[in-house]
Simulated assay, not measured.
Amino acid sequence: MPSNWSKGQTKETNLSVKKISDTMKLRKIDNFKVWREKMKLEGKIRSVYPSFTKNGDLAELMGVVLGDGHISKFPRSEELTIFSNSSNKGFIKRYSKLVEKFFNKVPYVAKTSWSNCVRIRIYQKHISQRLGVPFSPRKNKKISVPRWILSNKGYVARYLRGLYEAEGSFCVHLPTSTYKFMFSNKNTSMLGNVFRLMKVLGFHPHWTKANYNIQISRKAEVYQAIKLLQFRIY
């Protein structure tokens, strides 16, 4: 075989490369150990992943990841992806910056070729643990609100902002004077969390279980909630 026969190949795409990889793993041979240690010393590869500072920004990022995010686990890393409509430039900019702030890494931001969707994506170790958000899928998982968020109404509002930015909507039907500020999700525990937290902030939500949503319908409260959560204000 030519010396560059494996160029562009991986163990997922080439059986010979997979055999070499499996043999090295079995014999505990690490070809990249010296290079990896050098990169760590130079600060080009992280070796420490400290816990995040608990504040309003973290509460909001947790909320948006629970709503529009996906966390996957791989053998050597984890992947966080936040999805957005490509027309929502404010959302994309805001949450790209929050991801960069906490992970100290500029995320990959790109529109998919097959839909009107933009992905904000990073790879790093211990994402789920540090962020406090379980791996996907989360539809049937019980989601609890951390005590540090519950102890501060400002953090509660930021947590709810992230959730509503991801899964919320505001609609008005003037002929019938109908006003709706809604949060929709098929995870029952998340619906319960939003219902209780909106009550903590002084609102009177209604839980429509058949449609998987939490609604605020009083006109004054709708606008108060939008203002408090800074909904879609970028």
Rank of each mutant, 00 (worst) to 15 (best):
I149A: 11
S189Q: 03
M62D: 12
S189F: 06
R76M: 04
E12F: 10
K11R: 13
I71E: 05
I82N: 14
E221T: 11
F181T: 15
L201Y: 10
S169R: 06
N85S: 12
W35L: 06
V222C: 05
T176H: 13
R147A: 09
K89Y: 05
E42M: 01
A59Y: 02
T188D: 12
S169M: 05
V106E: 06
N187G: 07
N140C: 03
G154R: 12
Y108P: 01
T23N: 08
K186T: 12
A225W: 02
S21T: 14
G67D: 09
T208A: 15
R94D: 06
W5I: 15
K219W: 02
I214C: 13
K180A: 05
K73R: 08
S3F: 12
Y123G: 02
L197N: 08
R158G: 11
R119A: 06
S51Q: 15
N14G: 08
K105V: 11
I29N: 07
K28T: 14
R232K: 06
M24Y: 09
A210N: 14
Q124I: 00
V200Q: 12
L80F: 04
K18L: 15
G132N: 00
E12A: 13
W5G: 15
E165Q: 12
K73W: 12
S184A: 08
Y155L: 13
D22K: 03
R232M: 01
V109F: 00
D30V: 05
S21I: 09
V172Q: 09
L191G: 05
K97T: 05
T53S: 08
Q9V: 10
L15H: 07
I29M: 15
K40D: 00
F83V: 07
I82Q: 11
L174S: 14
V64K: 08
L228P: 00
S47M: 00
R196S: 14
F183S: 14
R130W: 01
L174C: 14
S113C: 03
E165R: 10
I122E: 00
F135D: 00
L61M: 09
A110M: 00
V156N: 05
K199R: 09
M24Q: 07
K111E: 05
L163Y: 10
M182G: 12
A166I: 14
K219C: 08
S189Y: 07
K18T: 08
S51H: 08
V200T: 15
